[in-house]
Computed example of a mutant assay.
Amino acid sequence: MDIAVAAAGIGPGDEVVMPAFTIISPAASVVRAGATPVLVDSSLDTWNMDVAQIESRITPATKAILVVHIYGLPVDMTKVLEIASRHNLIVIEDAAEMHGQFVHDRPCGSFGLISTFSFYPNKHITCGEGGMVVTDDETIAEKCRGYRNLCFQPQRRFVHEELGWNYRMTNMQAAVGLAQLEKLDAHVLRKHQIGERYLERLSRTPGLVLPPVEAEHAKSIFWVFGVLVKDDCSLSPADIMTRLAEQKIGTRPFFFPMHQQPVFKKQGLFQSETYPVAEKLAERGLYIPSGLGLSDEEIDLVAEAVHDIMVSV
Rank of each mutant, 00 (worst) to 15 (best):
E142V: 09
G100M: 07
I125C: 10
T126H: 06
A95I: 04
S115G: 00
F102L: 08
F102W: 08
P107F: 01
F119H: 08
R156Y: 14
D94W: 11
S85V: 03
E129Y: 14
E162P: 00
C108A: 08
D136C: 07
P154I: 04
Q101P: 01
D136E: 11
Y120F: 12
F158T: 04
L163M: 08
E82T: 12
T126W: 00
H87D: 03
S110C: 07
G109M: 06
N122S: 09
I83G: 03
L113A: 14
E142Q: 13
D137M: 02
E142G: 12
D136Q: 12
L163H: 09
H160I: 07
N88F: 00
Y120A: 13
G164S: 04
E138G: 04
H160K: 10
V159H: 13
G112I: 04
G164C: 07
Q101K: 15
D94Q: 05
E129S: 14
L150V: 09
S85K: 14
N88Q: 14
E82S: 10
V103M: 13
L150Q: 07
G100P: 08
I83K: 00
L89A: 09
H87V: 03
E129D: 15
E129Q: 06
C127W: 13
E82P: 01
D137F: 12
N122M: 10
G128P: 06
I125E: 10
F152C: 06
D94A: 09
R148P: 01
Y147L: 06
G146P: 02
F152P: 03
H124P: 02
E93W: 10
K123F: 09
F102N: 03
Q155H: 11
C127F: 15
G130R: 02
D136S: 08
V159R: 12
E93G: 07
M132I: 13
L89Y: 05
F158D: 11
A96S: 15
F102H: 08
R157W: 12
H160T: 01
R148A: 11
K143E: 05
F158L: 06
